[in-house]
Amino acid sequence: MSKIGLITIGQSPRDDVTRDLFSITGKGVEFVEKGALDGITMDEIENLKPEKEDFPLITRLRDGSSVVVGKRKIAPLIQSMIEEMENLRVKACALLCTEEFEVKSNILFLIPSKLIFNLITSLLSKGNLFVFVPMKEQMENAKRKWERTGLNVSVEVLNPYSSSQNIDKVKERVKGDLIVFDCIGYSLDLKSRIQEITGKPAILPRSILGMTIKEIL
């Protein structure tokens, strides 16, 4: 059975993610999970919150709650997790985050945002891209990031870790030829519900990761 490493910027295990991944890969894979926030206290997590010029990232803790951490502060922890995965001799490793980090890896390293970017540019040469992000503080950065596809980009907030949102109103907001969910927290179930409401094609990071992992097994 092939071992695939999964690195979350929060705490492992991410049962919510692996449940969706297994539905795509099947059971012929063993996921080895590590989290940047594993083994540290809530006070230490508090110190990882973004400061004024740092980029905020939302992630999930082991108890199901969510926290916000700073990209600059979390990056060294991601690099450490990659090095641990290399020592565990996994076949490949995947980042459970759609933000890009400047890291080094001696093994196959799957970065969802790069996989999605390449898929989008192969599907659309012109048109409108509609992007969901978890936080309003991420909207400007997401617009710049996805405009590199050469498409017209609209961005809206949809928190994957909140149960209080009324997604029935999404249809009124979605204006695009293709929807992108810009966070690993978005589930297959949420994608299906959004597609049913809007009738639009959509790209989900978990789906892309699952299909890529299945391909390289």
Rank of each mutant, 00 (worst) to 15 (best):
L190H: 06
V131A: 05
K126I: 15
M135Q: 14
L115Q: 04
I111N: 14
L178Q: 07
G185P: 00
I184M: 09
L119H: 08
E140L: 14
N152K: 10
F109W: 02
L115K: 07
I116N: 00
E140Q: 14
P112G: 03
Q165S: 12
I167H: 04
R193I: 06
I107H: 00
C183E: 00
F181A: 06
V174D: 04
F181T: 02
L123G: 13
S125H: 13
D177H: 06
I179L: 10
T149H: 03
N166F: 08
P112F: 04
K175L: 10
M139W: 03
N106A: 11
M135H: 09
I179G: 06
D182K: 02
L108M: 13
C183I: 04
L115P: 05
N128Y: 09
F181K: 00
F130E: 01
F130L: 09
I120P: 02
V133N: 03
L188T: 10
C183V: 01
D189H: 12
E156S: 13
R144L: 14
S105R: 06
Y161K: 06
S192K: 14
S154P: 02
K191T: 05
M135T: 11
R173F: 13
K136N: 11
L158H: 00
L115H: 06
L178N: 00
K104H: 15
L110F: 01
L119T: 11
L108G: 06
Q165T: 11
T121F: 10
V103S: 08
Y161N: 04
K114Q: 15
E172S: 13
M139D: 06
G185V: 01
I179P: 01
K104S: 15
V103F: 05
Y186F: 12
F132H: 05
L151K: 01
I184N: 03
S125F: 09
F130Y: 14
N166H: 11
Y186H: 03
I179H: 01
F130K: 01
I116S: 03
S122P: 06
G150I: 00
I184S: 08
S164T: 15
D182S: 03
W146Q: 05
K136V: 11
S192F: 07
W146H: 07
P134H: 06
L110H: 06
K136C: 10
P160G: 10
I120G: 07
I116K: 00
R148V: 13
Y186L: 07
F101D: 02
D182P: 04
K114N: 15
V155Q: 01
G185W: 00
I111R: 09
E147N: 12
R193E: 11
L115M: 12
N128P: 10
P134A: 10
R144M: 15
N128F: 07
K191H: 04
N166Q: 12
I184W: 01
G185E: 04
V155F: 03
F101W: 01
D182I: 02
I107Y: 02
N141T: 13
L123E: 15
S187W: 02
I116Y: 07
S125E: 15
N128K: 15
I179C: 07
E102K: 11
S105M: 04
N106E: 11
N128A: 14
I179S: 03
L178S: 05
L188S: 13
I179K: 05
G127V: 12
S192H: 04
L129C: 07
V133M: 07
N152T: 14
N166C: 12
K136A: 14
G127D: 11
L110N: 00
I120M: 03
L123H: 08
Q165V: 12
P160D: 02
I179F: 04
K136H: 08
F101Q: 05
L123C: 15
Y186D: 02
